[in-house]
Design a protein around this nucleic acid. Structure first.
Length: 118
DNA sequence: GGGATGGCGTTTT
DNA sequence: AAAAACGCCATCC
């Protein structure tokens, strides 16, 4: 499905030290209500390593996918190692670490989708 | 075809 | 604050 290829393209553009939410990725793929399918893409569809999965978190910075990493705290460790900030309650500090996408970047993605025919 | 099931998210108790 | 109820939509029995 083209949607999953888009998820891969978008996910690969999440900068090191930043995180994106499932919903945010769905938006960037032009499918605002497909947050769950993003999760499905990461867990079941895309080959492991296709994109930095540790940088994809739930709304508000929840580490909802931590279970599918090597150990329950692997995701957190990977993120801390690349400089992502955490709050006392264990969520990512989205104010400091969320991936901010500019209109420019969104348009680049659209162009890329078009170019790739996806 | 139809019901269950998600690495989700929002709204309502 | 926490839990449940919905809405969502591709997949998998």
């Amino acid at each position: 499905m083209d949607f999953y290829r888009r998820v891969a393209v978008v996910g690969q553009r999440i900068p090191r030290g930043r995180v994106a939410t499932y919903g945010q990725i769905a938006m960037l793929c032009q499918k605002p209500r497909a947050a769950r399918q993003v999760g499905y893409a990461l867990g079941r569809v895309l080959p492991p390593g296709t994109l930095p999965a540790q940088r994809v978190v739930g709304h508000g910075g929840r580490l909802s996918g931590a279970r599918s990493f090597a150990t329950p705290h692997t995701q957190r460790e990977l993120l801390e190692r690349e400089g992502v900030c955490f709050l006392p309650d264990g969520r990512v500090d989205m104010v400091r670490s969320a991936w901010q996408t500019t209109l420019q970047q969104v348009q680049e993605l659209e162009a890329l989708f078009l170019q790739l025919g996806i």
